[in-house]
Design a protein around this nucleic acid. Structure first.
Length: 921
RNA sequence: GCGGGUGUGGCGGAAUCGGCAGACGCGCUGGAUUUAGGUUCCAGUGGGGCAACCCGUACAGGUUCAAGUCCUGUCACCCGCACCA
């Protein structure tokens, strides 16, 4: 607190006062507005820089200290880039559809829009208090009808498109239709029946086209989460439980809207090489897509028309296939039951179906039942039994495998459990075959020949044998090369209320029809009761809005040429998942008010350019889900000519998690932070008992009472200190513990800055009469370093060098005349510029007191000559005598890179070293 | 189990290219200023030793004139995936 002697001290009250004043001034002057091409103030000569934060889900709990971490980083970079002459787009908005608001509505009956709007207002207030340079005129939320209108529009675009394998890109489905008409192609109208296009009924044609749409209605085994009352995408499930809430998930077949993301698997994979993203994230996406090359092999099944098709990555081990396994859900199981298999089979498949994924995860013990069917080995002609077991998944490959127990651990375990034959067919160097375990990996084929079929693999390397088998299979029509992905199509329907409605209706026969683009948005109807409808088949809450659901084609906005306006129709009652709005928001920020398109093409070309967003900052928890989905939508838009870059985000950066300290008793139970005393010697005690507790690092959580509220911190130190503290904690990408005690350090730094320039007694400027040469050199070096550090997002070291500079320039107490120390007016002006991106309010205040205006605040790098360390260029001494450094030896920099040779040997050099001279700073 | 990452003082961390380990901050110690506390300023602060010096970047080896940094192995923690054929 400022006392009588120092009324002009930089304390929390004063910091808050100038912060609010400047925030208001920036807001009123429109300093944060960013013009678009064609707008007033737009300067086409300036390069653009688009920096984006992952927009938040505005929860009722308000801002968390984790939010401002990334936002401060991007704000510093934005302010720096503006000073460097860039036109910077740095927007903010709200990812506002989602489960928490809906679940709150279920318990309280308050409409999600009410709670969400309130939460948004609170988030905006909190963010504005940090002085972030967001262009608030571009703000929007995904729940705004003006926004979700275009989310629905993009969905219709996918609905009206197909993936043309010839060009590996999305094309309008009308092109496919005209091609079918022109070529009068034969299409499959029912299993095994081919009909020429011209002879097909309208229904048949429609069904055929529907099977190609990128957004399509598919019956799939879905992940139903009873607790959440909705289905979930594969990506939203971790260890058989919902990512959100950790509730159990069961599998059931359901007709749902899907996205054909698998069509883009290869491009999503290949283009990862073109972006500047963290390796960890690219690896995770690569693994999620899970491309594997192998063969599809068709086995003849005794007494069946249809062959059994399997997928294997090791076709070379075909001679080691001693049995087959099909998933319990495989159609052939049903055939086996029909053909009179034992009751055991029926029992097993029924049990496997009901077994939740959680249970499946828990026990990996192999179970299974023989189906009684036999397949014929294509090379040897041997009869091999077909089993069913739940270790084979219906969702991957063909849901069937040829089991090669000798060279696959899972098959080996199963063969041991059911005493099935095991035949070694690969010899692996360094891993001798013992028959005790499976040997996996590549090697040389053995026991792999059959004179009858002419397939000879013995002696071949694995890669060679694979090719030979595939060629042999293809020649006989018994199989082919195949690429398989782990990635599945994206389940896009949710049985929720608080999401974007699908712009689609159904007639009484269940045919679907799109809502015309000019009838968008399809608005979410209000509802009194948000509870999910209890039912065996999942029923979305929207079904309760009966007047909305039951309507006519005309009222719903279906094109009259598709359906007569009086036709009774029902609306789709599923809604889109939370990811929908975040898939394209970065595009809307380019022209948030555009009414004629989802994005204004000129604005899109300017801000997105050919590489997309220049820097995207957000948590690594979105490494797969959001970032994969957004890339998919972007590629779809790219194919259809709506965006100009192949990838949405050129550079990606994940800020680390801000954790907190927690305290543990000897029995590992946790003690709330506010019940612990620091004894100051690195040990901690529990206040109530006096017992020793151990400090650990944990996520902030209510139960540990270690959650830090940004509002409280700002009230105590000001926003500039908060910003500086979070940036000074450590590397941006690292996870680091919040330590309230450390904030004082950066607060004191800002006080020193203030005291350096301002007399605390009367508020007047304190300026040095003449520049000190050492301080001047350090200032030049600091400006250079801070610029470099900002570019590489190393804010912690940038701040450290600012502190060093201020420490060097600080006047000692005993100095009588303040003009003998500190910085000159000109030096102070340069210093304020480098400080400004980090502590914008304090800097602006000093800048104004120096009589300058913000517009003139450009970044000026120091003169190179002034950055040199000192007049005598001392350098690192490579000289060692008996393995020891000899200090203080002068040594030119260049030869360090040069090769060492005898004449330059350290001993020779050290003879010339002048030991004992001081090292220059 | 597989893949990726991280291990540096009492604490957060620095060392960008293989070149004086511990910048900067917290905490702690001492001093000056102050009636006092606080504030501010100055100095010290990896461990051992009176010292010169010795030891020190998870552990064990290796490469190199030189290793926190590169290589091999081990351990611990974190993240992702997990019966994906």
């Amino acid at each position: 607190m400022a006392d009588q002697q120092t009324p002009h001290r930089y304390d929390a009250r004063f910091a808050c006062e100038i912060e609010l004043r400047w925030q208001d001034a920036w807001q009123r002057s429109g300093a944060m507005r960013v013009p678009n091409p064609g707008d007033q103030g737009f300067d086409a000569s300036k390069p653009k820089f688009y920096v984006l934060d992952m927009f938040p889900y505005p929860s009722g709990a308000g801002l968390h200290v984790g939010h401002p971490e990334g936002y401060t980083a991007t704000d510093i970079l934005s302010r720096y880039k503006v000073m460097r002459g860039f036109q910077v787009l740095h927007p903010m908005g709200w990812d506002a559809f989602g489960l928490p608001a809906e679940q709150y509505a279920i318990t309280t009956g308050v409409h999600p829009e009410v709670t969400t709007t309130k939460a948004i207002d609170n988030f905006r207030r909190q963010l504005q208090r940090f002085g972030f340079m967001y262009d608030w005129s571009r703000e929007f939320a995904t729940i705004d009808p003006d926004y979700y209108r275009w989310t629905q529009w993009i969905w219709l675009l996918a609905y009206g498109s197909w993936f043309d394998p010839a060009v590996q890109a999305a094309r309008p489905i009308a092109e496919l239709e005209s091609r079918l008409t022109a070529e009068d192609r034969m299409i499959e109208t029912s299993p095994g029946v081919q009909t020429p296009w011209s002879a097909c009924t309208r229904r048949q044609r429609q069904a055929h086209l529907d099977s190609f749409r990128l957004a399509y209605l598919g019956t799939q085994t879905v992940n139903w989460c009873p607790k959440l009352g909705t289905v979930l995408a594969n990506e939203e499930i971790i260890d058989g439980r919902s990512e959100r809430g950790g509730h159990p998930v069961v599998r059931m077949p359901l007709r749902q809207w899907m996205f054909r993301i698998t069509a883009y698997a290869d491009r999503l994979l290949a283009d990862l090489a073109t972006v500047d993203w963290p390796d960890s994230t690219r690896t995770m996406q690569t693994e999620w897509i899970g491309r594997s090359e192998g063969a599809e092999i068709r086995f003849v099944v005794e007494g069946e028309q249809e062959p059994l098709t399997v997928f294997t990555t090791r076709p070379d081990t075909i001679f080691g296939a001693t049995y087959m396994v099909i998933a319990p859900e495989h159609p052939l199981v049903q055939r086996a039951i029909e053909r009179g298999a034992r009751g055991e089979l029926h029992e097993y498949t029924a049990r496997a179906r009901n077994r939740s994924d959680v249970e499946r995860q828990e026990s990996k013990e192999k179970t299974g039942v023989a189906t009684g069917l036999f397949a014929v080995h294509p090379a040897t002609g041997a009869r091999i039994p077909i089993w069913t077991a739940d270790y084979v998944l219906i969702g991957y490959g063909t849901g069937a495998i040829m089991a090669v127990p000798a060279h696959d651990e899972r098959d080996f375990e199963f063969a041991k459990a059911f005493t099935l034959p095991i035949v070694q067919v690969v010899e692996i160097e360094g891993t001798p075959w013992t028959g005790e375990t499976a040997t996996t990996g590549e090697g040389t084929s053995v026991n792999s020949s059959s004179s009858a079929s002419g397939l000879q693999l013995n002696g071949m390397r694995t890669s060679e044998a694979k090719k030979a088998v595939i060629a042999w299979l293809e020649a006989r029509g018994a199989g082919t090369l195949r690429v398989q992905y782990r990635l599945r199509d994206w389940l896009f329907s949710r049985q929720r209320y608080w999401g974007e409605p699908f712009p689609v209706v159904f007639d009484s026969d269940g045919n679907h029809f799109p809502v015309a683009v000019d009838a968008l948005p399809v608005r979410l109807p209000p509802l009194a009761d948000y509870n999910p409808i209890e039912s065996n088949t999942p029923q979305p809450p929207l079904a309760k809005a009966r007047e909305w659901v039951i309507t006519t084609a005309g009222a719903a906005g279906v094109d009259p040429s598709l359906l007569h306006p009086d036709t009774p129709v029902t609306r789709e009652t599923n809604t889109m998942p939370g990811w929908a709005g975040s898939c394209w928001y970065y595009l809307r920020f380019c022209s948030p008010k555009c009414e004629s398109a989802f994005v204004d093409p000129e604005a899109e070309r300017y801000w997105m350019g050919t590489n997309g967003v220049d820097l995207y900052v957000g948590g690594s928890e979105h490494a797969v889900l959001h970032l994969l989905y957004a890339r998919f939508w972007h590629k779809l838009l790219y194919d259809l000519g709506h965006v100009s870059s192949r990838e949405p985000m050129a550079r990606l950066f994940h800020q680390g998690l801000i954790t907190s300290y927690a305290y543990q008793r000897a029995d590992r139970s946790l003690v709330p932070v506010d019940e612990v005393d620091d004894r100051g010697d690195g040990t901690f005690t529990e206040r109530a008992t006096g017992g020793l507790v151990v400090q650990i690092v944990a996520k902030m959580s209510k139960s540990l009472r270690n959650v830090v509220n940004p509002d409280d911190v700002i009230a105590e130190f000001g926003a500039d200190t908060f910003r500086l503290y979070e940036m000074y904690m450590g590397p941006l990408e690292a996870s680091k513990p919040w330590n309230t005690r450390d904030i004082a350090g950066v607060f004191r730094f800002l006080q020193r800055v203030w005291r350096l320039a301002i007399d605390e007694r009367d508020g007047s400027l304190l300026l040095a009469r003449a520049a000190n040469a050492d301080v001047e050199r350090q200032l030049a070096r600091t400006i250079h370093k801070v610029g470099q550090d900002i570019e590489r997002l190393a804010f912690n070291t940038a701040i450290a060098s600012l502190i060093e500079l201020v420490n060097a320039a600080t006047r000692p107490t005993e100095m009588k005349d303040p003009a003998d120390g500190g910085l000159t007016r000109e030096q102070l002006e340069r210093f304020v510029r480098v400080l400004a991106p980090f502590a914008p309010h304090l800097s602006e205040e000093l800048w104004q007191r120096l009589g300058e205006s913000r517009a003139a605040c450009v970044w000026r790098s120091g003169r190179r000559s002034m950055r040199r360390c000192s007049k005598i260029r001392w350098s690192n001494c490579p000289c060692r005598s008996r393995g020891r450094f000899v200090r203080g030896s002068p040594f030119p920099r260049v030869p360090m890179q040069a090769k060492w040779n005898a004449s330059r040997s350290p001993t020779a050099r050290c003879r010339r070293c002048s030991v004992g001279k001081p090292r220059a700073k």
